[in-house]
Design a protein around this nucleic acid. Sequence first.
DNA 1: CCGGATGTTCACCT
DNA 2: GAGGTGAACATCCG
Length: 265
Amino acid sequence: MPELIEVEYYRRALEPFVGGRVQAIEMPDTNFTRPKGTPIAPFGQLIGEVLVSTSRRGKLLVLHFGDNADDEETVTLGMRFGMTGRLLVNGSGPIDKLEYASGRNEPTWDRFTLVIDGHRLSIRDQRRLGSVELNPNLHQLGPEASTVDATQLQRALAGRTKAMKSVLLDQSLLAGLGNLLVDESLWVAGIDPRRSAASFSDGEIESLATAIVKTVAKLTNRGGSHTGDSFASRNVDVPCPRDGQSMQHDTVGGRSTWWCPAHQQ
DNA sequence: CCGGATGTTCACCT
DNA sequence: GAGGTGAACATCCG
């Protein structure tokens, strides 16, 4: 499920717990830490710390901790949700409906739980492609997609010749867009996902930045990355809702990609 | 049995 | 360093 939008919902769900103190952590699975191979023991330093604030950069949710609410930050915890990860608060999620993953919902998929003031904050991840990381380095991420402006996007694209879709999915260049948001943004902007990033004029980049910001805002209000106008057309039988043309699909940037050959050029 | 799924990373080529 | 491809991770579904 999670792209920037879903992770933002998760961040909001954590806000009521700011000010609370960590009583325990549960990590039944030994393969949910990042970088891969990081032992569980260091995560023990979270116990006794106060959740001071939450933040998000792209798809990375960051919890900031301190010894006391007013003191300096001592450690941060980064959460990633992979393809099938959700955040649950006391067993239920801000997003209960799984749009893509299977309909099953097993407590055994809880890979990480933070107990704060008696409340359980868990990452439930069937496929275990998510992770938790202490003090994640934000410098590895590009600018935030939900607020990207023309100058930032220009900088992200500079010198890139590969397909626009690949560039927009690259979290080190632009943080937050996943497969669905990229396809929807390009559909809105009328851009062929296969076009080289080097072929864009300043004006096109500017309108693409606008399309991304507007798309993220709109779908955030609608309820998720899967609520785009082109989402239903990720299907050979559902034509482009804008002009009725048959959608085209192929693998671009290693991901399943759908676009309208009539208005995306 | 096979392919594919809202993600990330790595190995291997050119 | 780019860029492309494919695999891997783990699991379920059609």
